[in-house]
Design a protein around this nucleic acid. Sequence first.
DNA 1: ACCTGAACACCGTTCAAGT
DNA 2: ACCTGAACACCGTTCAAGT
Lengths: 194, 194
Amino acid sequence: MTGRPYHHGDLRAVLLAGAERTLAERGPGALSLRELAREAGVSHAAPSRHFRDKTALLDALALSGFERLTERLDAAASESGDTRGGLLAMGRVYVAFALGNAALLDLMYARKHAPDSPGELTAAVGRLLETVLGMIAEGQRAGEVAAGDPESIAFTVASTLHGFAVLNSTTPPEEIDRSLPHIIDVLATGLVPR
Amino acid sequence: MTGRPYHHGDLRAVLLAGAERTLAERGPGALSLRELAREAGVSHAAPSRHFRDKTALLDALALSGFERLTERLDAAASESGDTRGGLLAMGRVYVAFALGNAALLDLMYARKHAPDSPGELTAAVGRLLETVLGMIAEGQRAGEVAAGDPESIAFTVASTLHGFAVLNSTTPPEEIDRSLPHIIDVLATGLVPR
DNA sequence: ACCTGAACACCGTTCAAGT
DNA sequence: ACCTGAACACCGTTCAAGT
């Protein structure tokens, strides 16, 4: 069953994995379908069977990025006790993702913003936002989050998490570990004096 | 004095303007030095006199983006009365920039995150953050912003502004006009019940 | 100082043909 | 169904040479 003589069998996944590696190690400018094909041991025309064109591969990469990020956020949310702990855990997850996959995170949103962006990407971002919304709604039920439109609150939190992660995707982890709790505290207590 | 026969005189600026136009209209994948040179009416080798390579042009583009965004944030901050009005104005400016220059904004942060990113980009982001910091410090002096480390508070605000703008760079303006004040309110009063 | 023209080593995409 | 090989029209970059 091993040693496929002609059919690769798993080319799509191999191309995606190779693309993610190149993206992380050498940046988006170094991504080449022909090189990915070479590394996979197939002809340069083979990838077209799995991805209509280069942007289709990028979109698939972006989609898998959103799915993994949302998965980890979900896990962080369900593993933590109160709302503050949940926010902290989600912040850590988001920042860790940004640190470990800076180029991928940039690509994820760049592709989402592209005029020919597929609906799957918008839907994937929607699922990410729903994860945050779930945690806020739960916090309101527990009396740990103030009353008010949960969508607005969740969107504020998601914005802060995303912005903080992007603005820190090049910051040393120890420094982030120190600053993240402060950011969560500001978000929790608000700007206006109490 | 007109009708330069050989020297272009303004090639660098023309290339940058063309690049920004292509970026906005056809996305980053359509950016080609050779095409920019063609549009500028020079040979395909001419751009190399002004930009060492393609990433140098992208970096220059990113830098000018950060400078313009910071300029507009500065203006918004100084034109508004209290802290809440300032935050709202800055939020509007940031979102307007994201809506009008989505691909450029993506490029700005992508280049900032690149391993070979020039220090000018980091410095430009620093100036952007300082603009937010200035407004927070002023708010604290006026008693409109709670006491606490101004850096942390400013970073929280900057994160929220950036995140909100990026998450909405594809949202219709009317919807943003409705939702932005709610986001500022959540940021102002905090998540925890008062 | 600034630009040209040719050359080189790459691309992405398409399409007949092979297994 | 999946892949190859050749072909086409592009790239970015370099470098002698021109003005």
